[in-house]
């Protein structure tokens, strides 16, 4: 189930946010070896202070198993402010219709490789569907995202291939990062839904409006 947490309802979702920052520490610091800032077992950076929105996936036990961070490209965001190298030092896209998606991750230890609701591919698809549906409702047509080559392969396999690539891949700590474009369209959402067998509304409508 996906909960959209923004700076309006953050106070109601403190626990969820804390668990998300812990998941990010396990994935980006411990597993991928990115040079990220971890405090008290939680990973966060300057962009988390700029009131982003998060699509957070929880399993049936209420544990956070996946997440993604979203920011407008009209304001400060990673590609314009610190990841210019991924764009070969070209100025970033700035558009009212494009959001930036970063810090996408899933909990590979809590999830299994295969199966249904508790699989990596199910949660991956669920986070993407939630993020893209949220974006489309906001009038957003496309997203730029910072991912690694493993994620790129996972996305290509799951009906979710990037629609294009920007700049060129660059080493970041132990891994390589790259900037991609993804259309936020019914076509992509349908492919994701077909791949993961998700037919239902992915959102937690109750807590979403609890401000």
């Amino acid at each position: 189930m996906i909960t959209i947490v923004d700076a309006i309802n953050a106070a109601q979702h403190k626990h969820l946010l804390g668990e998300m920052f812990k998941l990010r520490a396990r994935v980006f610091a411990d597993r991928l070896g990115w040079a990220v800032n971890v405090q008290n077992g939680m990973e966060s950076d300057m962009f988390d202070k700029l009131d982003p929105a998060y699509a957070i996936s929880t399993n049936d036990d209420g544990e956070v198993v996946g997440c993604m961070r979203l920011l407008q490209t009209t304001g400060p965001h990673m590609l314009s402010d610190i990841f210019a190298c991924l764009l070969d030092d070209e100025p970033a896209i700035r558009s009212s219709r494009v959001w930036e998606a970063t810090r996408f991750c899933v909990d590979t230890t809590r999830l299994s490789g295969t199966g249904t609701r508790n699989s990596i591919s199910y949660v991956t698809s669920e986070v993407m569907i939630g993020s893209f549906e949220y974006a489309m409702e906001a009038g957003i047509t496309d997203a730029v995202a910072v991912i690694d080559p493993v994620m790129d392969r996972v996305m290509r396999r799951s009906g979710n291939a990037p629609s294009d690539y920007l700049g060129s891949p660059k080493p970041m700590g132990k891994v390589t990062a790259l900037a991609v474009l993804m259309d936020c369209s019914p076509e992509r959402i349908n492919r994701l839904r077909d791949f993961a067998g998700i037919r239902h509304d992915v959102f937690d409508r109750q807590s979403q409006m609890a401000d």
């Binding site: 309006i8 929105a53 906001a138 009038g139």
Partner: peptide, 18 residues
């Protein structure tokens, strides 16, 4: 002031109990 905290357009129905 509150809508400024969101990245998405905020429908005023979100302020129903505000």
């Amino acid at each position: 002031h509150t809508a400024a905290l969101s990245i998405a357009p905020v429908d005023w129905s979100r302020f129903e109990r505000n």
